[in-house]
């Protein structure tokens, strides 16, 4: 089992690297030097072997964006997989149960009301206000949805999805109101939230994302066995020595962190947490021991591919990435509904 997993991990990482290399060359700007090795060598050596404009496009535009796609795609896919394990349902994803909405609602509040409360909070927090608010929004929504939809460890799927609908509606109305009262600059930021884009990628944001995702993965990525056991029911999992309550708290906390930060930096990119585990389940059934680590890589592959398409398909203009992921995700959502209609 482990050898098989290593093989799959290795080949999907290879796929991701290949895709990243291809993505580096995609775009309106064409590098003067064409060899990949020369470009990378030139950037690392910093010895003027490549032109300043080439350097800027690589280091200032494409690489940060590629890195952000890899980080956010991975984080969203793992969040989706963990939530599905916790709610024991393939429809439990950050967007469908309203966590993304909760996060973007709080982010919108931070944008519009931020200028008013900024004098009262410490200066170091100014920069991270947005991500902290998005994290709080995600955490609060998740706790609310879990409380409403789950009794005695059993989740009522309909209640879970409907509370997601309710929270999304609330978020929509409040964001709409905020758009109505906001100034022009805030308006641009708000529109960015609703559509989702990786265009605002910077190395600072990537560093924050990388730290948060690394910490989350230390706790979450080895929970495959535990999530498998939880399919037996929470009591039976406990008889196998699985600390169910502690694991659920970790999942709630770290998925809120990952989803919150992703929303803060890239807006609402929906359905990544639905598409990736769905595809993996088709191949590996629901063996979380395999699909949890693989979703970390394939999430990156999916989002990087989607982002590369989004910035090249209508070049020089950009299609918001949320449109692409929703286009892929919605049919899968319907497919899951059809498959599970008997058990709902």
């Amino acid at each position: 089992m482990q050898n098989r997993l290593s093989l799959y991990m290795f080949s999907s990482i290879l796929l991701l690297m290949l895709l990243a290399a291809v993505s580096l060359y995609m775009g309106v700007y064409v590098f003067e030097k064409y060899s990949f090795a020369e470009l990378i060598k030139g950037v690392i050596a910093n010895d003027n072997t490549i032109s300043d404009s080439d350097r800027f496009v690589i280091m200032g535009l494409r690489l940060p964006r590629i890195s952000m796609a890899i980080l956010i795609g991975s984080g969203l896919a793992v969040s989706g997989t963990c939530l599905q394990g916790m709610f024991k349902n393939p429809l439990a994803t950050p967007d469908l149960i309203g966590i993304t909405s909760g996060a973007s609602l709080f982010a919108a509040l931070a944008i519009v009301l931020g200028s008013a409360i900024k004098p009262y909070i410490p200066e170091v927090l100014h920069f991270s206000l947005l991500s902290i608010m998005a994290f709080l929004g995600a955490l609060l929504t998740m706790m609310l949805v879990y409380r409403i939809s789950t009794t005695n460890g059993k989740t009522n799927v309909i209640i879970m999805l409907l509370s997601g609908v309710a929270i999304t509606a609330l978020g929509f109305s409040i964001t709409g109101f905020l758009i109505y009262i906001s100034k022009e600059e805030q308006l641009r930021d708000l529109t960015f939230w609703n559509l989702g884009s990786l265009a605002a990628a910077t190395w600072t944001k990537n560093a924050i994302l990388a730290v948060i995702i690394t910490i989350s993965y230390i706790f979450l990525i080895n929970k495959g066995k535990a999530l498998n056991a939880m399919m037996l029911g929470e009591r039976d999992a406990q008889h196998l020595g699985i600390p169910v309550e502690r694991i659920k708290k970790q999942i709630v906390l770290f998925t809120a962190l990952m989803v919150g930060t992703s929303v803060a930096f890239a807006g609402t990119i929906s359905f990544v947490g639905l598409i990736v585990p769905y595809i993996l389940r088709l191949i590996f059934k629901s063996n979380y021991h395999i699909i949890l680590p693989l979703s970390a890589i394939l999430g990156s592959v999916l989002l990087l591919a989607a982002d590369t398409i989004s910035r090249t398909i209508a070049a020089p203009a950009e299609v918001p990435i949320g449109i692409l992921t929703a286009f892929m995700g919605a049919p899968i959502f319907i497919a899951i509904l059809i498959r599970n209609r008997k058990s709902m």
């Binding site: 056991a229 037996l232 029911g233 009591r235 063996n287």
Partner: peptide, 30 residues
């Protein structure tokens, strides 16, 4: 160990994988 009366009827895994869960207390990954 305990065998419960209300067994979950939706576990999308192979039979061997389900039985292997009984060994989860004994191994870490493999």
């Amino acid at each position: 160990a305990k065998f419960s009366q209300s067994n979950s009827n939706d576990i999308p895994l192979s039979v061997k994988d389900v039985v292997m869960m009984g060994r989860y207390p004994y191994f870490h990954a493999t």
